[in-house]
Design a protein around this nucleic acid. Sequence first.
DNA 1: GTCCCGATGTATCGGCTCGATACATCGCAA
DNA 2: TTGCGATGTATCGAGCCGATACATCGGGAC
Lengths: 201, 201
Amino acid sequence: MLELAILGLLQEAPMHGYELRKELATKLGTLRAAISYGTLYPTLKRLKLAGWISEAETSNDIIPPMTSKRGRVVYKITAEGKERFADLLTQTGPETYDDAGFGVHFTFFSRTDRATRLRILEGRRRRVEERREGLREVLSRAADRLDAYTLELQRHGLDACEREVRWLEELITNERSGRTPAFRNRAEITPEPPRPQSDRP
Amino acid sequence: MLELAILGLLQEAPMHGYELRKELATKLGTLRAAISYGTLYPTLKRLKLAGWISEAETSNDIIPPMTSKRGRVVYKITAEGKERFADLLTQTGPETYDDAGFGVHFTFFSRTDRATRLRILEGRRRRVEERREGLREVLSRAADRLDAYTLELQRHGLDACEREVRWLEELITNERSGRTPAFRNRAEITPEPPRPQSDRP
DNA sequence: GTCCCGATGTATCGGCTCGATACATCGCAA
DNA sequence: TTGCGATGTATCGAGCCGATACATCGGGAC
């Protein structure tokens, strides 16, 4: 999964490890806090060894922010890497439908075809529905065996599942009807009834 | 975290691995699908080595469903294990506030004191609020740099965060006002005030 | 002036966890 | 009678995280 994410980001621009991590954090921030270095650097090594990525020349610095030339290693994607990316993006397995896998695939949805998008959305929906049914099962069958806190947790989980299923169904409908980029057609991000902190002068 | 969960379950009744896994799946099913055997059995070994749990005699079978005496190993918690459980339940660190840790702690909330419950609820709220702020940041600052799908994912994540914060605040209010077992006051799943878990014939 | 801290940057190590796999027994149905 | 699914214990490889180490740079405190 991390492999897919790295290839996807490097396809946009060459980057070094530190930058990749930050980019990963903002784009995939929905799923995990940030990838750890203990994962990132060995993976970069592995991808380089496999030939999907290669070190870019440090001479012409594409990246503006930093100045001098310490150890910084800039990677770029290779032609084989692009093929690999396309393959990974299209291939689906069970791991495609859990939180991390779905998030990464979804992030790169604009780079794949509608059929794949639909397949993944429906697979994810199936997965969440299974979880939902499991929770309903527990709540209806084992409710008397569980204490109030455990029950409350299950209810909250059930709620989240139902909400996600609805979200997925909306997205699926959009895909089917041709409106590719899914979203709330509201022009703003903030319906947000009360007044949180969205005032910016 | 798994350690805490196992000790908690074994405090209710002696169990063997397979049973623990099922119990884990229903009680903590909200967080993860089910713990894998590759994790469970080594952990049981480790806990036994540490002295927190011990093998129960297979002679008198406490568990009704199964019959004969294959390899089945039934574990029970030791006195040291109970202390350990109480410690783990009270101690809080950063890992207490991520999904898995919070879920396990919450599941055993009825076995700890109100002060600890409040501390954990507030810690979790802080954590989710941080994530929420991060997402708002991205949505307001980097919105033009991201494609529609990525944005939609962030929005969905933000939504989930806001929802969880509201849920946590409700729970915190309940705790503060003395209404210990948190719940929707709907009668549907039994208010459950007068029956903790101390019934064993 | 200098000294320390936080951001930038690469890298490794131990430990937890998962998924796959292997092996073995039991009850039941084709 | 055969064989399949549930029950049950156990190991292995690989991915990932958190902690840690090391090194440079810019800027603010003193």
